[in-house]
Amino acid sequence: MPDPLYDKAHPKKGRRTYRPADFTYDPDIGTCLCPAGKTLYQNGSNCIHNGYVATKFSGALRDCLPCDQRAKCLRTPEKTKVRQVSFFRGKADSSEESHTGRMQQAIDSEEGRRRYGQRFATVEPVFGNIRHNKRLNRFTLRSQKKVDAQWKLFCLVHNIEKLARHGYAANG
């Protein structure tokens, strides 16, 4: 017999909770039964998790709370109210174009290059002037209303400086 102090292998842990294989899933009619025999509600049929399409199910509160198999079904039964389980149906279709891909195509087109090139002459210098030259590079207030007011004040300073520099009052 090997020395018990020398054997560094971890003892096998028994399964503590039910796995998705313990649930009865019928993909044809879209139903799922838990090990206690209760019907779970479908709350997502084409969910994508890590590139795989899944169907999600969730137990009912009236079924899960009084269930005697709660400790075997949930990892933390004192915190979690109902059991949720997902059944994966395969890899997600990667041929569907992403928003980023569509934006790349729009910018890489002739019209997109022309319009995006104009942006550097109209918008970017304003941000650069406000952030770098005036050193207004962070908001000091909190809440959207206050930040919006502070941003409008920054823009007002920028516009007043433009009027002063180009002699708006001197020509009139």
Rank of each mutant, 00 (worst) to 15 (best):
D68N: 12
Q69W: 08
R70M: 06
R70C: 06
A71T: 11
A71N: 12
A71C: 04
A71E: 15
K72L: 13
C73M: 06
L74R: 01
L74A: 05
R75C: 03
T76L: 06
T76P: 00
K79I: 05
T80E: 14
T80P: 00
T80C: 03
T80V: 08
T80Y: 00
K81C: 00
K81E: 02
V82L: 07
R83D: 01
V85I: 15
S86E: 04
F87T: 04
F88A: 05
R89G: 13
G90W: 05
K91A: 08
A92Y: 05
A92I: 05
A92L: 06
D93W: 05
D93Q: 06
S94N: 14
E96G: 08
E97R: 15
E97V: 15
E97G: 08
S98I: 03
S98W: 03
H99D: 15
T100N: 05
G101C: 02
R102P: 00
R102V: 11
M103T: 14
M103C: 13
Q104K: 12
Q105G: 09
A106V: 06
A106E: 10
A106C: 03
I107T: 08
I107E: 06
D108E: 15
D108R: 15
D108S: 15
E110N: 08
E111S: 09
G112Y: 04
G112E: 05
R113W: 07
R113L: 14
R113V: 03
R115P: 00
Y116W: 12
G117M: 04
G117R: 03
Q118V: 02
Q118G: 13
R119L: 11
R119V: 06
A121D: 13
A121K: 10
T122R: 14
V123A: 07
E124D: 07
P125I: 09
P125Q: 09
P125E: 11
V126Q: 09
F127E: 00
G128P: 02
N129S: 10
N129A: 11
I130F: 01
H132S: 15
H132I: 14
H132K: 15
N133A: 10
R135W: 04
L136C: 02
L136F: 11
N137H: 12
N137K: 11
R138M: 06
R138G: 02
F139H: 10
F139G: 04
T140M: 11
L141M: 13
L141C: 12
L141Y: 10
R142T: 07
K145C: 01
V147T: 12
V147L: 11
V147G: 02
D148G: 03
D148Q: 10
D148R: 12
A149I: 04
Q150H: 03
W151I: 13
W151N: 07
K152L: 08
L153Y: 12
L153F: 14
F154R: 01
C155I: 04
L156Y: 11
L156D: 02
L156G: 10
V157H: 04
H158M: 06
H158Q: 14
N159T: 05
I160F: 11
E161Q: 14
K162C: 09
K162P: 01
K162S: 07
A164H: 08
A164Y: 05
